[in-house]
């Protein structure tokens, strides 16, 4: 009701933090269980998929059994789960037979590329959406607002894989200014500067597709918040004091929109990750999305389990941190 009516004392805040952590740990445990059961409901198993190609046909029974044990599919379901959970608790994510490498190594190679896309897109769409949304919301109903909101509404109704395909078609195939796939050219340069340039060039299209996907969500948010802020007394007072436009934008609108942005970010990161998976597949980007997709096709249980758990743990940790920051900001009124 009044300013600062709800104040969060240090102790209850710490308690809420711990409680949030415990809740997220419980969710992670559910993910661990689901990620073990779900792939096994798919038709076929890793061994079967491998044997469907002809050069492994002449393996003996004992060789097949040994291979199955290495893939983690020997014994009953409960035994498999026990063995896998034991490994997991020791920090061992298992061994991928398809890639013939430990899952942890594969993840370490792919995660940076996915993070590059996410961390590249995040500032782009957050800043652009805030600027555009504030501009439109300050004069809600005006010409700028009507034009931009109409455009964003169309943008918001296009699913990310379509945007990705359209971008690729337009800027990589019909007018090939950007590379269509991969994160690096066939023969990457050895020089750091050139190599960084090549990475950036390859990342532009996927990052754009990802940013466009999230832009609409945050544009609407910023526009709505700004329309309300325009009528709040402290903004009127600041206008009456003749503050420079950039200060008004950053310190008055920006700072006051931040808590809602943070709150929305915490529930939109999971959507961001599912979008990144699709975009990586479209652009054949060597990130974790392509890895998971391949693992599903190959019925590579260990890799699928390891990758999903790594993504889920990362998401939950991020979600926890963002929520904590959001609670701290919201207390300011």
């Amino acid at each position: 009701m009044t300013a600062g009516a709800i104040r969060i004392s240090g102790r209850t805040w710490a308690a809420a933090l711990l409680w949030g952590l415990a809740a997220r740990f419980a969710v992670l445990m559910l993910v661990v269980l689901a990620v073990f059961i779900l792939p096994r409901l798919l038709p076929g198993d890793p061994l079967g998929i491998m044997l469907s190609s002809d050069y492994t046909q002449n393996l003996s029974e004992s060789e097949l059994a040994e291979l199955g044990a290495r893939m983690g599919i020997a014994g009953s379901g409960a035994e498999q789960f026990g063995a896998w959970l034991g490994d997991l608790l020791r920090g061992n994510l298992g061994y991928s037979a398809t890639h013939a490498r430990p899952v942890a190594t594969l993840l370490a190679e792919c995660l940076p590329w996915t993070l590059l896309l996410i961390l590249g897109a995040m500032p782009v769409y957050l800043v652009l959406a805030a600027l555009a949304g504030i501009g439109a919301g300050r004069a809600a109903g005006g010409r700028f607002d009507r034009g931009l909101t109409g455009f964003v509404t169309i943008l918001a109704s296009i699913p990310p894989f379509v945007t990705a395909v359209l971008l690729m078609l337009g800027l990589a195939i019909l007018w090939p200014v950007f590379p269509a796939s991969g994160a690096l050219p066939m023969l990457p340069s050895d020089q750091l500067v050139i190599r960084t340039g090549q990475i950036a060039l390859h990342a532009i299209l996927p990052v754009t597709a990802l940013a466009l996907h999230e832009f609409a969500r945050f544009y609407y948010l910023a526009r709505g918040e700004a329309a309300v802020l325009t009528h709040r007394p402290f903004v009127l007072n600041a206008v009456a004091r003749g503050l420079p436009p950039c200060r008004l934008l950053a310190e008055y609108y920006g700072r006051n929109i931040l808590p809602t942005f943070v709150a929305r970010l915490s529930d939109s990161v999971s959507g961001l990750v599912s979008a990144v998976v699709i975009i990586e597949i479209v652009f054949s980007y060597p990130g974790i999305g392509g890895l998971i997709y391949g693992a599903i096709l190959d019925r590579d249980y260990t890799l699928l389990q390891g990758a999903t758990i790594a993504v889920a743990a990362g998401l939950l940790a991020l979600n926890w941190l963002i929520d904590a920051a959001g609670t701290a900001l919201a207390g300011r009124g």
């Binding site: 300013a3 007072n237 310190e251 006051n256 009124g333």
Partner: peptide
């Protein structure tokens, strides 16, 4: 102006 809540930027 009269100091009503919200007269100053809460952040």
């Amino acid at each position: 102006v009269q100091a009503l809540a919200d007269s100053l930027n809460p952040h």
